[in-house]
Design a protein around this nucleic acid. Structure first.
Lengths: 342, 342
DNA sequence: TTGAAAGCGCTAACAG
DNA sequence: CTGTTAGCGCTTTCAA
């Protein structure tokens, strides 16, 4: 593969000059520049990014770690990140950690070895200590998903507890009493938050939180299906199920149907995320919406504030985005209203 | 960030020795090795992958270009690729081209600059000429999705035309006559294939292919929705719609419902891909299944055959995988059978 | 078993 | 405006 020296030779100039046109430096005469460009074309010269990164100590690359590429949530966030990265002339490396902390660590060392200029960690499973280690390499990073009071780092997050509270509160308002929860992976902090919002709503309604009505899912459709099956085999079935994400809620609806029951008349179902699919299942899913694409945008902007050196090192930002309840059909809102007014 | 020289100094050895333990060379005394390892730990040494890649002319990285991360098909293929890459100790860079040929080219040059060791291009929009240029850089690549008789390259593909034929044939068998098609993006080769399978089935049934019954979609839910709306506003509505992928089929079902009509009794719908969601919409989607994860696996294996130098350069492989019809509810199979036997 | 040193391809002073 | 040259951090002969 042709290198800068080959180009220099062919164009009859020095490597420095070639390097200058490569970097669009102003101090090159148009004539020589043309000659160099021509030589590059002829030789199919493609600069070696490794060598360049080595010399510059900068790779114009950021990395994005997402827990699960199959959950539509993350690709959408990723798009937000890519939008701003591309605009800034950066490439983004997408890494799918599959909610596996070991995989996450592996990717992290790989990315440090690659000397990426920055990192965005979505719903990371890493501990604060792990995160602080990244600091030693002077690689700026931004977190999304999990609020960490104690960590000096930029974070973009949603108020998961409040979102869950909204959903469960709605369920209560419609009139359900026996409400179950299919939680997300226990290792994820978000899952705890959602659980706490669930409990808070119940307690406010003077209802006791029953352990049998809380089952753990895996954040995937299957987990929702399985969890629901367990709940439906309880001697006293729940009247409503709040799943920690839409994927599981969709699995829940499927399970309810598979049991020959109906949503919402037999069992109501609510979710969290408002993925595109949630408005396409039957019945349309009542869920909690949060600005996912925007989270990606904001996270990326925060990151570039650091990369570009604009951000004051001490002022870390923790940006909270508010969730919103999307009332659709899966919780039987209308049916109940009708009952009430009759 | 500590470098190899720092480690050498701290351990009281030469950089060559450090490099040796870094590469697990056998000719280092256990004693010195331990000392070096200790020094590495203390200094939080992380080898510079750029420098290493520069010296070795090898990055242990392959790249995967996918057209649309939001279509669940591709993440699943990606998983197949990652499975074998990780096992071989390679990292994979995921690039989302959004069915944009310009973006694809950008990624490609970026990846060449990064000196990746290999490429997997999924349903690429690049021309054969474009592809041949990659050859000049001696970067092995494998294609999926599109069969190219004329290109000397490894390809893993599905018989899209046959799959479509199967779906439409089924529709005909159930008894529909006015069958419409929502095609994929016209720039994609797969779309042409699927269209041809559609036409073939109709012709075989002595039906004329009517232009008004063929609308172009965008491979996304929205495209299916919009296309269906147009079809439903025709003076003579189609009895069945075959969408070029499940995402559009799901959009089609949504549109039919939005018009106050029912699937399949008013309009039948069939799709292609058999994504997880297709079994969860109401009614469950009749669709064409193909082994997506397997495609990823096979593509990766073919690529590594080249990277590891095992593959004979002349014997390019074109691996064809067969699609399969999944009959579910959205085409009214059962209803028709009942009619027939009454 | 170890070390010295050249070289991978590029950038960026510095000198002209 | 252009060229010379010393690195960037690592690997790898070649000698010892």
């Amino acid at each position: 593969m042709a290198n800068i020296r080959d180009v220099a030779k062919k164009a009859g100039v020095s490597v420095a000059t070639v390097s200058r046109v490569l970097n669009r430096a102003s101090n090159v005469s148009p004539k020589t520049a043309d000659a160099v460009l021509a030589a590059m074309q002829e030789l199919h010269f493609t600069p070696n990014g490794l060598a360049r990164g080595l010399a510059l100590n900068r790779t114009r690359t950021i990395a994005l770690l997402i827990p699960n590429i199959v959950n539509p949530l993350y690709p959408e966030m990723a798009k937000g990140v890519e939008d701003v990265a591309h605009q800034k002339g950066y490439n983004v490396l997408l890494c799918n950690t599959e909610e596996d902390i070991a995989k996450e660590r592996d990717y992290l060392t790989m990315l440090i070895e690659r000397r990426v200029d920055g990192l965005i960690l979505m719903s990371t499973l890493l501990t604060n200590d792990n995160l602080l280690q990244i600091r030693e390499y002077n690689i700026p990073f931004v977190l999304t998903g999990r609020y960490r009071q104690d960590l000096e780092a930029d974070i973009v997050y949603t108020d998961y507890a409040y979102g869950s509270y909204l959903a469960v509160h709605h369920l209560l308002e419609v009139g359900y009493q026996r409400i179950a929860h299919i939680s997300g992976s226990a290792i994820q902090w978000e899952s705890q938050e959602k659980l706490s919002g669930f409990k808070k709503a119940l307690r406010e309604a003077q209802l006791t939180v029953e352990a049998k009505y809380i089952v753990e899912g895996d954040n995937e459709i299957e987990g929702g299906y399985l969890g629901t099956m367990r709940l439906l085999h309880l001697s006293e079935k729940p009247q409503a199920i709040f799943a920690a994400n839409d994927l599981m809620a969709i699995g829940a609806i499927d399970a309810v149907k598979a049991q020959g029951l109906r949503v919402p008349s037999d069992v109501a179902v609510a979710g969290f995320d408002d993925i595109r699919m949630s408005a396409l299942v039957e019945p349309k899913l009542t869920t909690v919406s949060h600005p996912v694409h925007k989270m990606g945008l904001i996270a990326a902007r925060l990151l570039f504030d650091h990369i570009d050196g604009g951000a004051g090192e001490d002022a870390t930002q923790k940006i909270l985005l508010q969730p919103k309840l999307m009332v659709r059909k899966s919780c039987g809102h209308e049916n109940r209203l009708r009952e009430i007014f009759n």
